[in-house]
Amino acid sequence: MSGAIIGDVIGRPYEFDHPVRTKDFELFTPGMRFSDDTILYLAVAHAAMNGLSFWDTLVEFGKRYAHVGFAKGFEAWVANEARVQGDSWANGSAMRSGSLAWIARDMKEALEMARESAMPTHSHPEAIKGAQAVVCAVRVGIEGGTKTDIRREVAALTGYDLDRTVEGIRPTYKRFMVHCAKSVPEAIVCALDATSFEDAIRNAVSLGGDADTQALIAGAIAETLFDVPTEMSERCLATLTPHLLEIEGRLATIRLSKARR
C-alpha cells in the first residue's frame, strides 16, 4: 500500500553514484532497501498515531537506526544531547510529513501537524512550507480531489510553480538538489504529470536528483491518484524491519479506512 516507501526503496539505488536522466531504468535492483527517508517517514507516523512528541520520536528513531545512515546534519542533531531546534531548509521536512495527511482529522489539523513535525530540525520557513505542501497534496487526493485540484490548492498555499512538466524540468535540473524550494515542487510535479503510480516513481527518479526523497514524495501523492501495483508494494515492503513493518501496518489500516472508494 505505501506509495511513499515504494518511492524510497526504488529511488535509493539511484541517489548518489548511479543517477539516471531517463525513465527507462530497472525498478527492482539487487541491493534495493529502505533508507533513512522511510525511517523518518514512519517515525513521524508513529508519533502522530500515538500522540507522542515529534522531537523525542525523531531522536529515538535516529538512535535506533543510526547504523542505516542519516544526513550529516540530522546525525549531529541526534548525537548532541544539548540539541537545540534546527533551522534547516532541506527537504527532509517534506519527506517525512506525508503520513500526517492520513492521520489528521481534516486539512487544518494536517497542516498544523506538518508544521510541528518539521520544527525540531527544519524550522526554516521554506522547510515548513515544503512539509505543508506535501501534506496538502496528499490530503486533497485523499478527499477525492483531482490533479487540477491538487495543483490549485498547493499553489495557493505555497506559491509553488506546478504548471510544469517532467520533460521540461529534467534537462536543466541540477544534480542532487535538496533545498525544499527547489526539490519539493519538482517532486509534486512528478506525481501530477504521471499516467500511473509507476510512472510517478519513474518521473521522480529520472530527474537525476535526490532520487529517493523525491520518489518518496511523488509516491505519497500518487498513491491517492492511482492504483499501487501489488508487486511493487510487496517487494518494497519486504525490505522493512519487523519494527518498521508494524508501524506501516498500522498506518495502512488508516489509509484503507480513508481511501477513496
Rank of each mutant, 00 (worst) to 15 (best):
Ile169Val: 03
Gly141Tyr: 12
Phe61Cys: 10
Ala137Asn: 04
Leu100Cys: 07
Ser117Val: 03
Phe74Lys: 14
His67Phe: 13
Pro13His: 02
Phe70Asn: 11
Gly3Cys: 05
Leu216Phe: 00
Met232Thr: 01
Met113Ser: 05
Leu162Lys: 13
Ala137Glu: 05
Val166Ala: 05
Phe28Pro: 01
Met32Leu: 09
Ala204Trp: 13
Asp56Val: 05
Asp227Arg: 05
Glu112Gln: 14
Gly69Asp: 11
Trp55Val: 04
Val178Gln: 13
Arg64Gln: 15
Asp17Arg: 03
Arg202Ala: 06
Lys63Ile: 14
Phe28Asn: 00
Val44Cys: 09
Ile103Ser: 06
Ala48Val: 11
Met95Thr: 06
Pro13Glu: 01
Cys180Ser: 15
Val78Phe: 10
Arg235Gly: 00
Met32Glu: 00
Gly208Ser: 10
Ala90Thr: 08
Glu186Met: 02
Phe176Asn: 15
Ile169Trp: 11
Pro13Ile: 01
Cys136Asn: 06
Val184Gln: 03
Gly130Lys: 07
Ala181Thr: 12
Gly219Trp: 00
Ser257Pro: 10
Gly145Asp: 09
Ala101Asp: 02
Val228Ser: 03
Thr224Leu: 01
Arg261Phe: 11
Glu186Leu: 03
Gly86Arg: 04
Thr158Ala: 08
Ala200Trp: 10
Leu40Glu: 07
Phe70Ala: 12
Ile39Leu: 09
Gly145Ala: 12
Ile217Pro: 03
Val154Tyr: 08
Lys258Gln: 14
Asn91Leu: 06
Gly73Ser: 14
Arg115Ser: 08
Glu231Met: 03
Pro242Thr: 07
Cys136Ser: 09
Ala48Cys: 11
Arg139Gly: 00
Gly130Cys: 09
Ser183Ile: 09
Ala259Val: 15
Arg261Asp: 04
Phe197Gly: 09
Ser117Gly: 01
Tyr160Pro: 12
Ser2Ile: 03
Met95Leu: 10
Leu225Gln: 04
Gly219Val: 00
Arg164Phe: 15
Ser97Tyr: 04
Met232Pro: 02
Gly73Ile: 12
Val134Phe: 08
Ile217His: 11
Arg33Gln: 09
Gly11Trp: 01
Met49Asp: 14
Arg83Pro: 10
Phe74Gly: 12
Met95Arg: 12
Met113Arg: 09
Gly11Tyr: 01
Leu256Asn: 15
Thr158Gln: 08
